[in-house]
Every structure is written in structure tokens, then in C-alpha cells.
Amino acid sequence: MSDTPPEIFDRAARRLRRDRAAPGYAEHEFLRATMLDGIAERLDAVTRDFTDILDLGCFDGAFVAPPGARVARCDPGFAFASRTAGVQADEDRLPFADASFDLVVSAGVLDQVNDLPGALSLIRRVLRPDGLFLGAFVGAGSLSALRGALRVAEGERPAARLHPQIDVRSAGDLLMRAGFALPVADIETLDVRYRDLGRLLGDLRGMAAGNILTHRQPLTAGILARTFAAFGDAASEGDRTRETFQIVFLTGWSPDPSQPKPARRGSATASLGAALGR
């Protein structure tokens, strides 16, 4: 009997969905573009140079590296990998040697990884000491309008049709478990207004974010019609329904002796009572 836990996501379906999305991806890349903007802001705040960078989950190669840096690109899908002269590989099965990069960026893929703790550990391993990881993915609280419409359409016991989502606190814990130093996880909200459910589903397919659960159940015509109606009933301003994407950003450093350390317990020189004026 195998000790390997069952996989949540269908790896073959994921590769196929990414290859299907590749030709028209530019029409649906707004969510990853927002993630890359956030990563660029965080990178701008770092006062050091990076020479060897891994773009993990590269899609169309939109990540712009600092001048003079070498960029290796990697994607689970063949079409995206070949378009960017990159390597095709899953994030929890990286083919790179330890300490190959001083910066790893990943936008829009870590929420579809079977072994996310393992993937984060591999990211830390391919970083050099004092290397930086910057990541972003869709987190808990996202697609609340779609979830609500599916609950209305399917009643009290809806089938699993949307991926499990990671909240920001759990994301920070995962960074610590993977061995990152100075871990930070924070969240930003992006609201998008849709005139109908078809446009939302089209965006999800177009950004390779459709259902790739291992145990998928097809939507019957009746359930789909009720879901469309419930999504439309949630419309407000301008007859559009607001859908929410919660973007979790991750920042972590590969450990190095030069990094600041938390103060040793009991080393304070002033008491809390004195600070409070007691």
C-alpha cells in the first residue's frame, strides 16, 4: 500500500488546459498582470541586484526582469514553455540544481499545485543563500459570487467544482515550514464586474484557471442554467455582478548568516511596565 497522499489536481488536465489557453491568453491576462504589478512593487523596494532569475509559471513571459539579469522560464504547460524558450515542469517537480538562482518569481500558479509545501521547499533549495522569493496566487475568499451562484443552483450539497483556496495566514505558515527567513504574506483585493456568468467562465478558461480537480463532476444543463440565473440575480450597479479575487502575495528569503535575527528572548533592557509609564 502506497504512502503517497492522493493528488487533488489532475496534472494531465492542467497541462491540457494551459495549452488550450495559450493562443488567446493575452485577452484574459488581467489577473496575472495585477499580480506582476504587485511583485514589481515589492521588488523595487529591495536595494540589491539580481543576476539569475527563475520565472516559475511563466505563462507568456510577461515578467520583466531587471536590466542585465538572466531569466530562466518554467511552466507546467508545453505551449507556454515553448513560447518563452523555457522548461516544462510542475512546480513541485523542479528540474533545477540547488542554489541556481538569486531570485524566484511566481505569479498565478501556486494555487494549482498538488504539493505546495514541497514546491515551496524546492523554491528555497534552488535559491542561493540570501536569495529572494516573490510569489502571488489566488487565495481564500476569491470567486465568492460564483460560489454563491453554485450553492443556489445545487442546493445544500453542491459538488466540488472550485479549487480549495489558501488563506493569507496559512500561506505565511507554509513559508515558515519551507524554511524561508523573514517570511511575509499579505493580501490585495481585485473586484471585477461581469455582465453575465459566461464572461467570467470565459476569463477563467482563458487564464487556465478552470476546474482541474482530480474528481471532476460535469455540470448538467439544468444546474448550469440555474447557476447563470443566480449569478445574474446578484447583479447590482449597471446590471453587472461583482466578482472578487483575493490575491495572496508571498515574500521570503533563503537563509543566510548576514540576515537580521530576532532578538534573543530576555535580552530587552527596558521593562514593559516602564514603557507604559507604570
Rank of each mutant, 00 (worst) to 15 (best):
R199E: 10
C58I: 01
L224H: 12
G139W: 01
M207E: 09
L132W: 04
L174I: 06
I39A: 01
A181D: 11
A140G: 11
A171P: 10
D173A: 13
S258Q: 11
A85E: 15
S142Q: 01
A69Y: 01
K261M: 12
R124V: 06
L201I: 06
S121T: 15
S170V: 11
D102K: 00
G273H: 14
S106N: 03
G206K: 02
Q259R: 09
T269F: 15
D75S: 02
T84W: 02
L162K: 07
L146E: 08
F9C: 05
R17N: 11
I166K: 00
D196W: 06
E41G: 13
L31C: 04
F9L: 03
L204N: 09
D167V: 06
R18Q: 07
G118W: 04
L250C: 01
C74Q: 09
D44W: 09
S236L: 15
P260G: 03
F78K: 13
H163C: 05
P183C: 00
E243S: 07
F249T: 02
M176H: 15
G108C: 01
A153L: 01
G131V: 07
I166Y: 00
P66L: 08
Q246I: 11
A45Q: 08
P5V: 00
A160K: 13
G198L: 08
V126N: 06
F228Y: 15
A89S: 06
L54H: 05
V248N: 00
A85T: 12
T4W: 12
I123G: 02
R42I: 04
Q112G: 10
A230R: 04
P158W: 01
L31E: 01
Q112N: 12
D44F: 07
R205Q: 09
A85G: 15
T241N: 07
M207T: 10
L143S: 05
R157C: 11
G139P: 02
D98H: 12
R265C: 13
F59N: 11
A119N: 05
V109M: 05
E188V: 13
A145K: 02
P76E: 03
N211R: 07
A275R: 14
G24T: 14
G148W: 06
V152G: 13
A221I: 10
A107Y: 00
L116Y: 07
L200H: 10
P183W: 00
A185N: 02
A270M: 13
G131L: 05
G135C: 05
A178P: 08
F101P: 08
L197A: 03
L204S: 04
R125G: 04
L162C: 08
A221V: 14
V109L: 07
R14G: 12
T241I: 05
A274N: 14
F101G: 03
A159E: 15
A178C: 09
L190G: 05
F180N: 02
S121L: 14
E41P: 07
L134D: 01
V192F: 06
I166T: 02
A89K: 03
D98K: 14
L54Q: 03
R15H: 09
A171M: 11
A72F: 13
M207F: 08
L94F: 04
V109F: 04
S254T: 10
L36S: 00
L143R: 04
S254I: 13
K261F: 11
L43A: 06
A268C: 15
R42P: 02
D111P: 06
S100P: 00
